[in-house]
Design a binder for these strands. Structure first.
Lengths: 213, 213
DNA sequence: ACAACAATTATACAACCGGATAACAGCTGT
DNA sequence: ACAGCTGTTATCCGGTTGTATAATTGTTGT
């Protein structure tokens, strides 16, 4: 009786871009489901449909894959928020601000996966220089856009110190509502977070924001 | 030449309470310094001045120690905020609310350790039922106190739906400022976070909050 | 003093981690 | 058809993790 032929797993060759995207997506999913500790090289490879060794063929280390995943989530978040501005009336600053706020409270930004990854990696960005760079760039880019929207409101003087303070406050309010929504998903009614955000931002800025629904 | 006597580490017997407290404190420190992954049983034991086996003598598993550490941080946070109310004028609702907000932006609440642990464990509370229970109890307890302070303001009707919404918004604003402060420690001037929080909460509630400094 | 009890240490273990390396196999060009 | 390139798998490795269990020792009661 011959020894059973050592069957080797069949596979398809794929382009570099597709494989990197798959690995990043698998990493994001796993972090969202079980935290950073669930995203092991073996689990990521299995989720992406490859074997663990391939990770180190496309990324010099697991940390580099981690940074790529974090960057992907953060950039995707800001990008979809910015894209939502295209839908708003270009000449109405208040409507544009409303659209900006609203984009934060519907998919893909208000998404369990996005929020979980954001929370899971938040701590890492304190110590890891690479992660910190990603965080600072994304956070400040986001807040600067918010500040520009605020400065464009009627009765505002661009460059005033109050714009910075108001941008910090509005950003914090949005962040906090995100977190509460992520930590207690069923603790809020449908659309409640957006409603609270719109009235809260309006109160901070001293105006009434229309609901862009 | 006789074999060197196998020296066994000397030790002192301690009460259960002291040892549990030491282990919890060590766990918190390590999480704050290097995230949840740095808090291994061996590192915790070394920090607490004992050997790893002792952890499982006082906690049925490492997860139970983890939950105890999370509960300790969360309860300590709300407790110190609540205690700060004792210093405020009892009859002035606005001053009491100011004191409540201000307590969130000075030690021991606005503390790198506290904030780091809070952020590190936030994700765990999504999936781990035990951690979730701790989170819900602490978060809702905190928000309910805030809502009670808001309801006591002049011109407010206790039990109104608006109180809940305003409490959610104020809580989110405070949470968000916490996080921004934790993720970018040197991104804000001295006292800037508190100042933004006071004016933001005041704007949301439609009143002017005195700085309790 | 001495015995009994429990707090603490010491050791062992299976599972898993990230990384390194070598063998294999699916494409592509000719 | 076939040879070469490289994407991909397979296997191995040292170190670490959480946990289980046994041996030891500090303490306390008598």
């Amino acid at each position: 009786m011959p020894a059973p032929a050592p069957t080797r797993r069949p596979y398809r060759r794929e382009g570099e871009e597709k494989r990197r995207d798959d690995l990043v997506a698998a990493c994001i999913q796993l972090v969202a489901e079980g935290g950073t500790e669930a995203a092991t090289v073996r689990a990521i490879a299995e989720r992406a449909g490859v074997t663990p060794g391939l990770i180190r063929h496309y990324f010099s280390s697991k940390d580099e894959l981690t940074r790529a995943a974090y960057r992907s989530v953060m950039e995707g978040m800001t990008q979809s928020v910015v894209l939502s501005l295209g839908d708003a009336v270009a000449n109405d600053p208040a409507a544009r601000l409303s659209a900006f706020v609203a984009a934060n409270f519907r998919p893909p930004v208000l998404d369990p996966v996005t929020l979980a990854v954001w929370a899971a990696y938040l701590h890492r960005s304190r110590t890891d220089p690479g992660m910190r760079a990603v965080h600072e760039a994304t956070y400040l880019g986001y807040r600067n856009r918010l500040e520009a929207l605020i400065a464009a409101l009627p009765g505002r003087t661009a460059g005033a110190a109050r714009n910075r303070r108001d941008a910090i406050a509005c950003n914090a309010l949005i962040d906090g509502l995100w977190i509460e929504g992520a930590a207690l998903p069923q603790g809020f009614g449908d659309g409640e977070l957006l409603s609270v955000a719109l009235s809260g931002v309006g109160a901070i800025l001293g105006l009434s924001l229309p609901d862009p629904a």
